[in-house]
Amino acid sequence: MQAELKFEQLVDEHQSMVFSIALRMTGDRGLAEEIAQDVFLELARHLNKIVDADHARNWLRRVAVSRATDALRRRRTRATDRWVELEEKHAVEFAVGDSPLGRRVEELLKQLPEQQRSVLILRYQEELSAEEIATMLGMPVATIKSQLHRGLKLLRSKAQAELKEFVRGGESFHSVELNTAGSTE
């Protein structure tokens, strides 16, 4: 009974964290939900090994990243399937953020390699330090720092290019609008 209550409480507290990690890693709501379910079922099997709340939170983060990476690899291996392509196309339509910048960042995030993506998610969604990420993923701190730096640089350069494109498009649209308005007058 105690374990049941503990499990329910952990699901309650961490479902949005696990779901968000899976969603940002995969970009697919349905898949993210499946991953979240798998992660919590695995937690149920390992519940007796969980020491405290911090341990549970870190365990869930690590397993969520790992399951999402596995799911992406599985999806890549069956990428030739037309139905999967359609499914992926559909998944791209989804956006986490409401703002245009949020939507673009989500799109750009999907273009990054899985490891860089997971490091950025753990850094900016979970607000973990490079040291904490290194401990969690079992990687050297220097590697994490370099992944963060490269990921951020790539994201920034792509975002800036998109922004310039957006501004240029907006200006031309604006000038056309003005010209049309001038001609009618």
Partner: peptide
């Protein structure tokens, strides 16, 4: 942008 999303 990276704020947590509500679970479904």
């Amino acid at each position: 942008v990276f704020a947590r999303v509500d679970a479904p």
